[in-house]
Design a protein around this nucleic acid. Sequence first.
RNA 1: GCGCCUGUAGCUCAAUGGAUAGAGCAAUUCCCUUCUAAGGAAUAGGUUGCGUGUUCGACUCACGCCAGGCGCGCCA
Length: 568
Amino acid sequence: MMDIKEHIAGKLKAILTELKFEGVPEIKISDNPEHGDYYTNLAMRLAKQSGKNPLEIAEELKLKIENLKLKILDRVEAVKPGFINFWVSEKYLLENLSSIVDKKEEFGKGSLFTSKKVMVEFTDPNPLKEFHIGHLYSNAVGESLARLFESQSAEVWRVCYQGDVGLHVAKALYGILNHSEGIKSFEDKPLSVRAKFLGETYAEGAKAYENDEDAKKEIESLNKKVYEKDASIFPLYEIAKGWSLEYFETIYQKLGTKFKRYYFESEAGVVGLKIVKQHIGDIFAEDKGSVIFPKEKSGLHTRVFVNSLGLPTYEAKELGLAPTKYKDFPYDLSVIVTGNEINEYFKVLLKALSLIEPSLAAKTKHISHGMVRLPSGKMSSRTGDIIAGDALIDEVENRIQKSYPDVTKEVISKIAVCAVKYALLKSNIGGDITFSFEESINLNGNSGPYLQYTYVRTQSVLGKAKNNNFQFSILNFQLNEEELNVLRLLSIYQQIALEAAEKYSPNLVANYLFELSQKFNLFYQKHSILTPEEGKEIRDFRLSLTSAVGQVLKNGLQLLGIETVEKM
RNA sequence: GCGCCUGUAGCUCAAUGGAUAGAGCAAUUCCCUUCUAAGGAAUAGGUUGCGUGUUCGACUCACGCCAGGCGCGCCA
C-alpha cells in the first residue's frame, strides 16, 4: 500500500514548485472526522511568505489537487483560516483492508531502518540485588523499541548490561557473610527462595553500610577484593551471581525478551579504566587521588571516573562499554534505556565520550523512563520500599485467577504480562507513572486485557463463520458510520507504527490500538457480523473487517511485546 | 543555592504550533429472546499551576514566578 501522507505531500510539492512557492508540505492525520482523514496547514504557512490571504491560497491549492483527480481521494476542501482537508476514497480503504487480510503479520512493516544495525540496551538489573518494578518498566520499553525497530527492517541486537561489580555487590556479599543463615543452607532451595535470600542480604548489607563504620570499611575492602578476584571471596561471589542471573533469566522468559549478548560492568570497567588513563591530562584530571572529568571540560558538572582506590566508577565503566559494544556489533544506532534518575550523569558521560570517540557518542541515544509508583495504601512490601518485579506480576496473576477461574494458567500468565506491559507503555516514556492493579486488569477500561478481549471477540466470530473464504470486490452497498470509522483507523496503522519507531514512542501504538478496539466494539455492538439483515455480501465484508481488526490488534500488540490469546 | 524533569476533569493519562483540549476510571442513567454484557450508549465533570510575551493561531515556544520529583566529587 502506498503511503497516503507522502503521496499527497508529493503532489503538493509539485504544485508548489509550479506556483513558485517555497516550502515542504506537511500532511497530518486528522483527529476529527469533520476535518477529513488528513489535513495540511500549508496555506497558512505560505500566507506568511507571500503576503496573500491564506484562505485564497488554500482554495487555489484545493483546485489544483482536484484537477489531478487522484483515485485515493474522495474529496478536498479548503476551510476557514486556511486548512486543506482531505477525504480518502472508499476504494483506497477497501484496498487497504484486502492488503491486511493478505499480508497478515507482515502488514504494517516499514523500511525506516533498512540495512541499519541497532543495538538496544535495556532492563539492566544488577546481580545480587532485587529485580524491581523499574527493571520491568525498562524491559517493557526496551523490548517494544526493539520490536518497533525490527518492524522497520532494522537488524537489532538486544543487550543487557549488568552491574556485577561495585559497591552494591560488596554490600550484598557483606550481607551474605553476616546473615543468620549461611548461603549453604539455601543451596538446595528453589530458585525463587534463593533470589529472595539475595534480595534480603543486599538490604542488610546496605543498611550496615549506612549505620556501621566498621561494616563500611569491610564492604569497601570486599569491593576491592571482588575487582581483584581475591580467592577469599570470589567463589562465594560466583555462586551468588550465578543464582541471580539464573533467576533473571526466568523473568526474561516470562516477559518475552531474548538477549543477544550480556555485558557486565566487570568487563566494561577494564576497558574504561584504560581509556580514562590514556586521557589523563587532555580530558581527565587527577585530583585528591581520584580521576575526574572536570566541569571546565564538560561544561556540566565535575564527576569522578576513577575513585581514589583506583577503581572505575559507573562513568568509566560506561565509557568502556560503548567501544566494547561497537566491536561486537558495529551499530548505526545505540539506544540505551534507563531510569531518568541518571539523566545528569549520562549527559556528562556522553560529553566525555564525544571527546574520545565522537562517532560513537553521535550514534548513542539515551531513553529514560520515570519511576513506577503504586497508588497509596497499596501493597507496600514489608520493608516499605520497593516491590519486586516478579511479585507484581504474581499479584496481577492472582487477581486475574480470582476473577476468571476457568482460564488456563498459561493464558492467565499472558494476560498478566499484557496487563503490566500495557499499563507501563500506554503513557509517554519519561514521566513517572502510577501502576494500579485495578486499572491494569479492568476489562472495561483502557487496559491491555481489554485489547486482548477485543481480539478474542474477533477470533470468536471468525471461528463461527466456518467458511473463511469471504471475498468482496466492489461494494454495492453504503458503508455505515461504524464500518467507515474502523476502516479509516485500519488505514493509518502503518503510519502510526512508523511514527512510533521514529519517535521512540510505543505509546502511540498503544493509544491507537485502544481507539481501534473502541471503534470495533461499537461496530460489533450495533451491527451483526454473521447474520446481517442486508445479506451475504455485507456478511463477507464484515467478516473481512473483523479479520483485519484482529490482525492489526495482533500485529500492534506484538510491537508492544504483548501476546494475544485465542480465548479468555 | 545550581541543573534537569514534571504540573491538563475528583483519580490515571492523551492531544507532531492548529479547528469545539480528548479518553479511561469513579458518579448518575439507559441497552442482553442477538456473534463473549469480560461489551456498548448517554449525562455531568476544564481559567491546561500562575503571570507576561512571541505568533494569523499557544496545553505545546520564550522569559519570570509557584508547587512537586530527581540530581549536584569518589554508589549505580
